[in-house]
Design a protein around this nucleic acid. Structure first.
Ligand SMILES: [Zn+2]
Ligand SMILES: [Zn+2]
Ligand SMILES: [Zn+2]
Ligand SMILES: [Zn+2]
Lengths: 166, 166
DNA sequence: CTACCATACGTAATACTATAACGTTTCATC
DNA sequence: GATGAAACGTTATAGTATTACGTATGGTAG
């Protein structure tokens, strides 16, 4: 059965394109910025991009160990720190997990739609939300450093599948 | 030195009123719902309300141990689970910490302004933000279960203090 | 009454997440 | 070829959270 009517941008797509685009962009960004996308960092980024699901640090570690026996927690966390600093991945606070950044323009003005069923995370730009939110923050005389908007629920794809089962 | 011009709702207030209001409300809500605000749960809620700072589970545990030697992690986490279920506290995902809920009407349509300096957390209702956000979520065909908007930065009080030092 | 059941709690063990500390390698620069 | 910075290796430890199983309590059906 195919899901022809699902509306999520994550459905039915050529994921290899996501991966290669993400890695190409990362390589490009790192060259421009003069920072090193070392083999470990590159591999961790690739592992994160294996799917659109949020992935845990120790799961990454297990997978990294398959090709790099000596990998330790610090190995992963250092790579994650680097990738976050460079805005190449996002930390999902409510899951203690990580996803590849798919902000089209890497402006990181995004909200995360986290599916509690399939665990995929969709990043949406939501310009209007950010505008109104910025205004609200300003009204509170609060000096913004960073913001995280994490929405939990059921994605359109999973909802459609559940609907089909009835 | 007093800070007479700070604008945060958390400044210069009678915190005993916050605590007693929160505890009274909690007792009332639990009676209405037919759930038990046991002595442990009540005490944990009181400890959380000692300040407007987000508090960690193991810090709560240490303080609970002072009056209840046998307290263990499960003691705290069970109380926290209950209080969250009842909407009497919020979990701050980005801090692995907890704050008392101060939604005026316990509708939990709030955003959290988290000060990185003093660690106080202000809960703001932000109706307009929620409206626009709800619309955005609907457009994504996403079925909402819960949402967390966590803003990090410097609160007006801390900003004013920093200003005074110059 | 008492057998039953649900809720809350006691207790121990364990799992999961993350960082600290210090040594080594590498490579560009002086 | 000494110096210094960045990345990584390695070990230990800190911090966060859950599982599992046993006990106590109180309400309720029989
Ligand atoms: Zn993809
Ligand atoms: Zn889903
Ligand atoms: Zn107060
Ligand atoms: Zn502050």
């Amino acid at each position: 059965m195919t899901i022809s009517f699902a509306s999520s941008q994550l459905s039915e797509h050529d994921h290899k394109k996501c991966v290669s685009a993400a890695l190409d962009t990362a390589e490009h960004i790192c060259i421009i910025r003069g920072v090193q996308l070392t083999p470990i960092r590159h591999k961790v980024l690739e592992l994160i991009w294996e799917s659109h699901k949020a992935v845990k640090a120790y799961d990454l570690l297990d997978r990294l160990k398959l090709i790099m026996e000596a990998a330790k927690p610090a190995t992963i966390y250092r790579a994650l720190d680097f990738l976050i600093e460079q805005g190449l991945i996002h930390r999902v606070e409510s899951l203690n997990a990580f996803i590849g950044c798919s902000c089209s323009d890497h402006q990181h003005e995004q909200l995360l739609l986290i599916c509690n069923r399939c665990h995929e995370v969709e990043e949406r730009s939501a310009v209007k939300v950010m505008e109104v939110l910025a205004h609200e923050i300003e009204q509170a005389n609060f000096i913004l450093h960073s913001k995280a908007i994490e929405i939990h629920g059921i994605c359109s794809k999973c909802d459609a599948q559940a609907g089909n089962k009835n």
